[in-house]
Design a protein around this nucleic acid. Structure first.
Lengths: 192, 192
DNA sequence: TTTAAGTTAGTGAATATTCACTATATTTGC
DNA sequence: GCAAATATAGTGAATATTCACTAACTTAAA
């Protein structure tokens, strides 16, 4: 369990990553924004790596929670995929700060423990989609002339790419609108 | 035109980014690996940003060259897409160092001039695919029940994702093999 | 003789982290 | 019930290290 201060630290960290980039997430910057001294940070986290790890942990929890919600949905597999798709886009659209963190993989690559966490989160998300697709192929909802792994890769890849582009282009266009168009296309692709 | 030394500097830089991550691309590190002193670097590039810009410029040229090659191909649009797809995977597979650079967008985000270059490269690549798809839709090679932009997004997104995963997972599995499977899937998706 | 390309030896600023110390609660022993 | 002991959360100052970059000098070639 996280203390109030720990929550504050990781929330501020996410905010800094989003608005100023992960490069500017320094202990100095962080402490200043919270309004405490630099050493005070170390009363709550052992190291900067620990802070980043807590951020990733936080994402994992949100992710797992969402998967649980999807599992409880009654209905078609396509409906489930559509739900999770739009949910993710909704989250990113409302809290763009999360995007920067998710796409900071390249920076996390240095720290082995962080990189492993990233891979873990990504793999689990992909496997979840894979399982849905296998289910859909079994009950003939989804085409089975293409391997389930390939289909999952296409779905997740498209999702990542649309979010990434939106982020890079300063969030100019309407992500939710474009997301809807994409999911409609993906539905056609999966079923025909 | 780049001098020999300038070429050496950007090649070493790419190598460092690939093997040690962009964080470790420092002037000190770079000069040591080349075997000259730190200030000597500044005889060839005005700043570190200039070095990174030259790297991106280099990528852009390779990219444009490839697009030119594709344009000269006689044959179906699907064949062209397949060619460019396998070519990209081949390049990344042979020179994994390039992947890290391409995916370092998040780090380039800080420097405005670098970010703009990245967006420029990404946009042009996507537009190239979009044009191919439009052409394919016109001559009934490619399905037209889905918008060309959406189809391009799916193709590029899938390509990016497969490469990214391969990179994150320490290049364990066979990228070329998996790439072939993906392109076969994409061909089915585009045509049916 | 000029100039390009190198050198040594520095710069200030930034980095994560540690130090010794303090004010304020909270818990414990009598 | 209350003093003593301890825990919590903070402080300013300092640590070693790294960063991009610069000033001034040297060398070698055209």
């Amino acid at each position: 369990m996280l203390t109030e201060r720990q929550e504050e630290i990781i929330n501020k960290s996410i905010e800094i990553i989003a608005t100023q980039g992960i490069q500017r997430l320094t202990i100095k910057n962080l402490s200043k924004e919270i309004g405490i001294s630099e050493p005070a940070i170390y009363r709550h986290f052992e190291s900067k790596t620990d802070i980043l790890l807590a951020i990733l942990q936080n994402f994992q929890e949100v992710s797992l929670y969402m998967e649980k919600a999807v599992r409880d949905i009654k209905g078609s597999v396509i409906g489930k995929i559509e739900f999770i798709f739009s949910k993710i886009i909704e989250i990113f659209s409302q809290e763009p700060s999360h995007i920067s963190v998710i796409f900071s993989e390249e920076i996390f690559k240095n720290e082995v423990v962080l990189k492993e966490k990233i891979v873990e989160i990504m793999s689990s998300k992909q496997q979840f989609i894979e399982n849905l697709i296998v289910e859909g192929q079994r009950n003939s909802e989804i085409r089975d002339d293409i391997d389930y792994k390939t289909l999952a890769l296409i779905v997740v890849g498209a999702l990542r790419f649309i979010v990434k582009q939106w982020d890079l282009k300063n969030q100019h266009n309407n992500l939710i609108e474009e997301g809807k168009e994409l999911i409609e296309g993906l539905k056609l692709i999966l079923t025909t």
